[in-house]
Design a protein around this nucleic acid. Structure first.
Lengths: 197, 197
DNA sequence: CCGTTCATGTAATCTGTTACATGATTTA
DNA sequence: TAAATCATGTAACAGATTACATGAACGG
């Protein structure tokens, strides 16, 4: 399972559940997300299976923290997953389901409104990734050809996120233009019908 | 929920669960998927809530079929969803998690292998969509500016699917090239080290 | 007669979300 | 002292997958 393997990968140097959640919010959103209520039990189960070890650490602030760390068995399991085939999930896009079904409404104005809304959402998502990119660039001016393998691979995944958002935005723009054409054509037809009378 | 609304949208003209599953396999894969074991109970629940009606139809072949049809309440609920804001799910891409964590392996050859595998998967996914496109074009030569609103909106969703797969493939190619450069650079360094001795 | 497709379902399990409960520490 | 952040969890529910059970009709 992806979350389990992500947790294994992320606990190489010892982290708490809370820190993992923050990592999702700060720089992993384009590949995965999970709530704390999913993370904590998942970490516990991985420890039961011997893939992680945990230790209580005196909390510098807040209450006591539980730091999880990858075990040798966990490392082995992780490598197995990484060296296996890439896992391509089925696509599940509510926004595309909506677009498809908008066809049944026969109201191109509604489709236009839909495209505006989608564009705004995709723009803000893209922006978040571009901010992250800039942060990384400030941190290491050789970006994007950063030296470390870990940073380089993270950068590679961000490229997928950026490309996906940009492709979506381009589809929005093209789609909107096509819908506008249809609307104009329909109005033209109506006018010419009115002139006929 | 997306599946429920998809089922509402797809039962406008009366369909069976089995036919819906086939629709997923034939032309809806780029936006959603569901198993029969999820579809049947979902249809039942929608009928209980009065959003669908069902009727037994004598099966031309096989056993008796249950044909579901959108009710006026279902239509109202569907329109509500369609006129609300576009729903953008969190991104969850196991293949990106893998790419990110491959950084920890420090083995660029493994990353190269990963890119080959991913490229093959994305290519076959793209091909399936291109076949679908061709099928639609044969069926209506005015494709992609097809006349009916329903067909046009389906075509719009396919554009998103095509763009996404193409963007992914382009990322693979660029990524692979960058990894190859790093491998070459590493080998060059090793050789010069060997000459030094 | 055997495999495929048509056709509908159940059960167990896994994955993920929302809401709730608790409490310490820091900053304004 | 109130709000924000750090920190860990539980419970109930919703969404999705896998495995299993059943049976009719059709083509070879």
């Amino acid at each position: 399972m992806s979350l389990n393997h992500l947790l294994l990968g992320v606990t190489r140097d010892g982290v708490t559940g809370y820190e993992i959640k923050r990592a999702f919010e700060e720089g992993l959103r384009h590949m995965w997300n999970a709530e704390l209520s999913q993370i904590y039990p998942a970490l516990e189960r991985l420890e039961e299976r011997g893939l992680l070890t945990s230790a209580k650490a005196p909390g510098e602030r807040g209450s006591a923290r539980r730091v999880y760390k990858l075990s040798p068995q966990g490392q082995a399991e992780l490598e197995l997953w990484l060296c296996a085939d890439p896992v391509l999930h089925d696509e599940r896009h509510p926004f595309l389901v909506q677009l498809a079904l908008l066809g049944g409404l026969n109201d191109y104005r509604q489709t236009l409104k839909y495209f505006s809304g989608l564009e705004a959402l995709l723009r803000s998502r893209l922006q978040a990734m571009e901010f992250l990119e800039e942060k990384w660039r400030r941190h290491d001016p050789s970006y994007p050809e950063v030296g470390g393998a870990a940073e380089f691979h993270m950068q590679l995944t961000l490229e997928f996120g950026l490309a996906s958002a940009r492709a979506g935005l381009e589809c929005c723009r093209k789609g909107r233009r096509r819908v506008e054409m249809r609307l104009k054509a329909a109005e033209g037809t109506r006018e010419s019908h009115e002139q006929e009378r």
